[in-house]
Structure formats: C-alpha cells, structure tokens
Design a protein around this nucleic acid. Structure first.
Length: 480
DNA sequence: ATCTTCCCTGC
DNA sequence: AGCAGGGAAGA
C-alpha cells in the first residue's frame, strides 16, 4: 500500500489481509489460541517493525482505528472474543529527518517487541517496508500478567517507492518477432530502477534475458531492448512466450505480457526459389495445357501458413480511403454476361498490374462468404479476413508452381500492422513484376477456371471494375 | 533520482 | 464536502 506523510493530512488507507482479493476483502486478524479460562483481560498492541530479523521498532507510525502515537492498542474480553480483526489501519511515514525522533518516541513507549535494543544504528532502516507486529498481554483473574510471544505479519511495501513497488509492463511496441531474436522493442512500464531490472522472456522452463544497457532505460518508465533468440531456431510454427520484468534485488517478477516468435527462414518469402521456378521447363509445359481439366498429376498441398496470421488488418479500406491510387487510366473492360469461363490459355495471356491486383483482392473480399472465393483468396494473397497479406507455403518443396502474390499495399500493411521487420521485406522489384496469371494458373490447379462467376456485373465502381479488369496482354517470359 | 508536498479526479 | 487513489510538482 502507499505510505502517507503526516503533511498529507488524511487517513492513510486501510491495510488488507494477506489473503485479501478484489472480490473478497479480508483484514489483518489475530486469534488467541489455548486455554483462556482464567484470563480476565487481553491487551493487544500492534506496532510497526522492520522487515528483517531482528525485527526492530520501525519509525513509521500506525494510524487509524484504535491507534495513537503510532501504535494500535485494543482490549478484548477473552470470554467472548478470542479473535480480532483490525480495520482501517494505515501507515504514516515519517520524514527522514524525523527518523531519530520517531525511534526515540517508541523507546519512551517501551515498544520493542523483540528486545532488539533500540540504540542500535538506525541508518540501515528500510523506510519502504514494514511489518505489523502483534504483542499480546494477558491478565489473569488473580491480576497476574503475562506476555505471549509477538508475531509479525507479512512485509508491507510502500507502493510509491520504486525500489519496492509492484512491477508492471504497460505495453510493448512489438508483439511479434523472429525466433532469431535481436528485434528492437520498446517497453513502457511503471517506474523501475535502471540498475535493478531485467526483462525475461520465458516459456515453460526456458528463460532468457533481453539485451539492454542501463542507458536504454529511459526515465525509469521505458526500456529499449533487443529480444533474445528463442531456444530453438528451427521452429516451424509461431511460438507464444511470456515477457516480464524482474527486479534483481528482491527477485520480484511482474505479470507477463505475450510475445510471439515467428519461424525463421533464410529465404522467408521464397524469392530465390520462385525465381528459379520461373524458368523451369516443367512449369511451362504445365501451363501449355489447355481446355479440358486435367487429372491432377500431383496433389497440390492445401496447407498454407499465413504470415502473419494475426492480428488481422483492421485498418481503413485503402481504396475507399484514397490511400491507394486507383488505376490512372480506365481499364479495358471485358464484360462477361454471367460466367467467366477462362481457359488455361486465356490465363496465360493475362497479366495484372498492381492496381488491378488490388481490385481483384477487393472483389474477392466482398464475396468472402462464397466458399469458392475463400478458396481463391489464399493463393491470391489475402489473409483470413480477406485483407491483402502475404502467404507462403508450409512446405515449399512440395509446391509445383509459384504462388507469389503481393503488392505494395499488402506489404505496407504488413510492415505497419504485423511488425514484420523491414529487413525481412521481400524483393519489391520482383513483386512489382509478378505475373499474376501464374498465380491463377496455380490456384486453379491447372484446370479450367470457372470460378469467377457471380461477381456483380452491373454495379458501378471498383467492384465491377474488379471483374472487368481482366484484360489480355502478352505474357512476358520472366527473366532473372 | 529521491523525498515531500500538493492537488486532481471519481466516487 | 469528504475521502481514497493517483499523479505531479517542488525541494
């Protein structure tokens, strides 16, 4: 709890029980156990003592109900009350310069539960932590008095002092990063001491310290650090770990926040592999098949990883917001009355530019309920929320063709919203030059494309454009 | 950066 | 208005 100065002129709050919770508040409570038959009167004195043994009298004052001169005294009738709960106890701190006087006062009150001999040096008293000490004096029917051994509470820390306050991470600017570590992350936190704090990444029994210097702790409330590498470098799935603050002096940990390690791949966007495939003869043969559906010679894997999988992009619609330039020149419109029925060879002769790609994405996303479009969306490069994103196959070796799809927009979104480090950006020139017909070829598994039906034909605006933008253009063989 | 004092805000 | 809980200014 927060200790209050006398000058603040108010009650100092109420100390709660050790087992108190938000919904179930408890109070510091003592109970006298044993035979009380001949006990007439019970006096309980509560005072503050130092945290460590020997528990010396503490200069701070106990204030609140039944308190005076810094201590609390209650009398119980043992025949009816063996137990007492202390309500409204607060801790009033003395100023450092009044520390001596306060201790002198305790001495005069004869408060020294553990007979520590007050005269001992007072310089090393920790002003940020106290314990309650309960003393009990019994008075028998015959007037004889006796003392029970004193007991102490758990330590009570001053919430205000950075050396003992609760550690808390407010937020991280990044929640994702490669398992190789070294990602620079900004962390906002409650006040910490730069020489007494570390940042721990953990999962199960694995723990690693984030890397930072004392100078990376900004004004006690922010830390710029580098993520440690995850324990394994060959993960294939993302891994969620905990991040928390740890104070070295007392080994206190903060509540954790989540961080996700992403799999490492030396060629994360398969740029090199795809470039190679571009000139692959087999691929060209496949593409030359026309007309009838061909039995799939090899199964096309249906499993894809999304990078990133979450959180979904929930920003403004780029087209609507005017963030994306709409095609500068009207697209050549080819309207199909009901069904778009492309053949393989048609596809081969189609090339989309970046703007057109955006429109396709839009069209598909507006038909997201249609399972067919959903299935198209992946190869086209939309994430589960039908937002442009980037995908790559789980097992690139099994993939016969190329599935590269991206655009400036989707990559920009990704960088901003998904925390993909800029260093990991794919080769932009390459993606600007993507021939999307290859994509379509792939997603249709080498068969007829009959799947673009149902798009609105008669509405105006980008949607119908998205449909009609399919235009023909000579295929350029991609040269590396 | 810490220790004290002051004051704002929502019950 | 009074109070508890915080945040911030001042020393």
């Amino acid at each position: 709890m927060r200790f209050r100065y006398e000058c603040e002129g108010r009650s100092a709050g109420s100390i709660l029980g050790a087992s108190s919770t938000e919904t179930n508040k408890t109070l510091p409570t003592v109970e006298i156990q044993g035979n009380l038959t001949h006990i007439k009167k019970v006096k309980i004195t509560v005072s503050l003592v130092t945290k460590d043994i020997p528990h010396r009298p503490h200069p701070h004052s106990l204030v609140g109900k039944d308190c005076s001169d810094g201590i609390c005294i209650v009398y119980l009738n043992p025949r009816t009350h063996q137990r007492h709960s202390f309500t409204n106890l607060g801790i009033q701190c003395v100023r450092r310069k009044e520390l001596d006087a306060a201790l002198e006062k305790r001495r005069k009150q004869k408060i020294d539960p553990f007979n520590t001999d007050h005269s001992k040096s007072i310089e090393d008293i920790d002003m940020n932590v106290v314990r309650l000490c309960f003393q009990c004096e019994l008075e028998r029917d015959n007037g004889e008095k006796s003392l029970l051994s004193p007991v102490v509470s758990n330590a009570i820390f001053d919430k205000k002092a950075t050396t003992t306050s609760e550690l808390k991470i407010t937020r991280l600017n990044l929640e994702y990063g490669p398992c190789t570590g070294k990602t620079e992350i900004y962390l906002l936190c409650d006040k910490v001491q730069k020489d007494d704090i570390e940042i721990i990444f953990s999962r199960g029994s694995w723990e690693a310290k984030a890397e930072f210097a004392q100078t990376d702790v900004h004004r006690q409330i922010a830390i710029v650090f580098k993520s440690p590498p995850y324990q394994e470098q060959d993960i294939t799935e993302k891994v969620e770990v905990n991040v928390f603050l740890r104070r070295l002096s007392d080994h206190m940990d903060s509540e954790p926040v989540k961080f996700t390690y992403l799999p490492h791949n030396p060629d994360p966007y398969e740029v090199n592999r795809k470039r190679k495939i571009k000139t692959d003869l087999k691929f060209n043969e496949r593409c030359s098949i026309s007309g009838k559906p061909e039995p799939a010679a090899e199964p096309v894997p249906q499993h894809f990883s999304y990078l990133p999988l979450e959180p979904p992009y929930i920003g403004p619609d780029p087209l609507q917001e005017g963030l994306l330039s709409t095609p500068s020149q009207p697209l050549e419109e080819i309207h199909y009355p009901n069904t778009l029925d492309f053949k393989q060879e048609d596809l081969l002769s189609i090339k989309f530019n970046s703007d057109e790609f955006q429109l396709i994405c839009r069209t598909l996303s507006q038909n997201a309920d249609d399972p067919l479009f959903s299935s198209l969306s992946m190869p086209i490069g939309l994430d589960q929320q039908m937002q442009p994103g980037y995908i790559f196959p789980d097992n690139p070796e099994q993939l016969p063709g190329d599935l590269e799809l991206a655009s400036n927009l989707s990559l920009t979104n990704m960088d901003q919203n998904y925390n993909v480090p800029l260093d990991n950006r794919p080769d932009m020139d390459f993606y600007n030059d993507v021939q999307f017909n290859h994509c379509f070829n792939q997603l249709t598994n080498g068969n007829h494309v009959t799947s673009l039906e149902g798009l609105p034909q008669d509405s105006t605006g980008p949607t119908s454009q998205g449909l009609s933008l399919i235009k023909t253009e000579a295929v350029q063989t991609h040269e590396d």
